[in-house]
Amino acid sequence: MTTDWSQERLLIYAPHPDDETLGCGGLMSKAKRAGAEVYVQFMTVGDTADESPKGFSTAMERHTEIKKVSEHFLWDDWHMALPGDAYHLRLDSVPRVDLTRLIERESPISIARLEPTVVLVPHRTSYNQDHQATAEAVHTALRPSDTRLRHHPRLVLAYEEAADQWRAEPVDSPNLIVELEEEDLLAKLHGMELYGSQTHSHPHTRSELTLRSLSVLRGMQAGVCLGEGYHVLRHLA
């Protein structure tokens, strides 16, 4: 499958700030270099206690990081759907119908308003409940129907993150590899640097070495130097 990214309008769903860079950072760089439009729909963010060197990050800090990353990748727009601790790491408590309506029509960059040609979502096998809730809600929003009545993106992809492999059952390897140039990988790595509250040293799923190693592995599987792996959910030729 060959894609002319210059003709595409990408809409990426990120459960939290940094998921879009971890999963699609290379593609965002490649697509923008080609002339594509790129939009990011964040689902939620809140104050977070984690295992980073700092140990704690606030929602305000995360919003500041988003602005820096947006400028770095030259996003055309982004939106935070459900900010606050009532939703952060609790999206599984929000009725799917409400998440689906937001994704389908209510967000300023909803599918109905933006009419993207490519939609990218987290993989539903993630152990993280917010990732699962986002993946399932987008899946519902993109349900088959009459294309004369509802917009259907031509290409729907699930992106991968290193931690997605933490499952009791086997996880299929990506069936689509997007070839990256070194500058695309460097853009991805720098994007994660700008998420300073979320970066970690190796060994960690968000370390620079992990991201580079996964890119080398996916590239090798396609016979190229560097790549990013995706699962094809819909491809309308």
Rank of each mutant, 00 (worst) to 15 (best):
D130V: 01
L217P: 01
A162D: 08
H235M: 14
L142D: 05
R124G: 00
R218K: 09
C24E: 01
S110G: 14
A36L: 01
Y230N: 06
R62T: 10
M28W: 00
E20I: 12
T140V: 09
W5A: 13
L142V: 02
L176W: 15
L10H: 00
D172T: 09
A187E: 02
A31P: 06
V69M: 15
L99M: 09
D184A: 15
S207W: 14
A187C: 08
E161Y: 00
L142K: 06
E65V: 07
H79L: 11
I12R: 03
A135Q: 05
V40K: 00
T48L: 11
V156Y: 00
P153Y: 06
W5P: 10
T199H: 12
Q129I: 03
P17R: 10
V216Q: 11
G46N: 09
L176I: 14
L157S: 10
S126Q: 05
E181N: 04
P116D: 15
E71N: 08
P83Y: 04
R96Q: 03
S145E: 04
P174Q: 10
E104H: 07
F56D: 15
L120E: 04
E61G: 07
R62S: 05
H235N: 13
R234I: 06
A137T: 06
M80Y: 09
P203I: 08
L82F: 14
I177Q: 02
P17V: 12
V171M: 02
L194M: 13
E8R: 05
R167V: 14
L27Q: 01
H151D: 10
S6A: 15
V216L: 12
A158D: 07
R206Y: 04
H190P: 03
Y230D: 09
T199D: 13
H131M: 01
S201C: 14
H231R: 04
A36P: 03
E106P: 14
S70R: 03
S110K: 15
A237I: 08
Q165S: 08
L186C: 07
K67D: 15
H79N: 11
T199R: 13
T125M: 10
H79V: 15
G25N: 01
Y159D: 14
